[in-house]
Nucleic acid binder design. Structure first.
Lengths: 150, 150
DNA sequence: ATCCATTTCCGAAAAATATGCAGCACATGT
DNA sequence: ACATGTGCTGCATATTTTTCGGAAATGGAT
């Protein structure tokens, strides 16, 4: 992970379809050298995968929601984590410091989808209390990338 | 955006380096047809870009932080949004419902980097109050993808 | 400083992949 | 029935990736 690797990652982040020759020209290396570096970055796990950044609107996932979760005292925490990992709407789930125990980030098509989501969480007896926060607009939206569960 | 497009996007999400022939075999189309569909998906903006998913640890951004922000009454909100968009550590910034006005998601190398970050926010007179939440672990970590600011 | 071992790089050939296009099939609306 | 538009295929071509031998650079150790 030297300066050239960093630059290669920057370039791939912006456009992973750029050719090895293009990248080579930018970093001052031959295509084969760039190839070898990308191979190593992938093998070592710095690059986890090549993927696509999608438009939330056109994929029908317009509404961004954060849900703070306080687990029930008797909740099966492992089961909750597995549930979160498998849930198609849940983009992220973090165990966090502070008054709440978990923070879930999810995307839904519209706000009507939130209530069933919360109802399901409660019916599975994971949640004690929860607090839902909607994103109204996003000065820095972040990328939309599918979960890596292949 | 028919069922085949959806499947192509699923396949590309999991591995954007898969060849057109491979994808074609999975969806029952010739390579050229897949090529044309990918071209259209990109042109129409469904696919925003091809990119890479990185390992936070190996990129030195181990610590995930959420910061709730209440802007000062006299804060220049446009300036704040521009600042957030340009800030290298800020992965996301959302205007949200609830008691706080903004939610910022950022990654830092270690917790010592948080204080300077907050200090900078305050010195620019954006922030009234703020609350910082650290992610301790992430059952669903989400992808790490660089911001699209090329 | 010199030597050796290791790594990294390059260039050229070969393999794989993407691209562009003509022609065909199918559906839609007139 | 006809014309129009759209999407698909298969082929030819262009581009890109991959491989590999040998050269250059790097990094210790003496």
């Amino acid at each position: 992970m030297d300066a050239i690797d960093t630059k290669i990652i920057d370039l791939l982040s912006a456009d992973a379809k750029r050719s090895l020759a293009d990248i080579g020209a930018s970093v001052g290396l031959s295509p084969s050298s760039v190839n070898e570096r990308v191979r190593r970055l992938t093998a070592s796990g710095v690059i986890r995968r090549f993927t696509v950044d999608l438009d939330p609107v056109q994929t029908g996932m317009q509404t961004l929601v954060f849900v703070w979760i306080a687990l029930r005292d008797d909740a099966d925490e492992d089961a909750f984590r597995a549930y979160a990992a498998a849930h198609p709407l849940i983009l992220e789930c973090h165990h966090v410091t502070g008054a709440w125990s978990y923070l879930i980030k999810l995307r839904v098509g519209d706000t009507t989808r939130i209530e069933p989501f919360l109802a399901d969480l409660k019916s599975r007896r994971f949640v004690g209390r929860s607090e839902t926060v909607l994103a109204l607009s996003s000065p820095v939206p972040g990328a939309l990338v599918r979960k890596d569960d292949a």
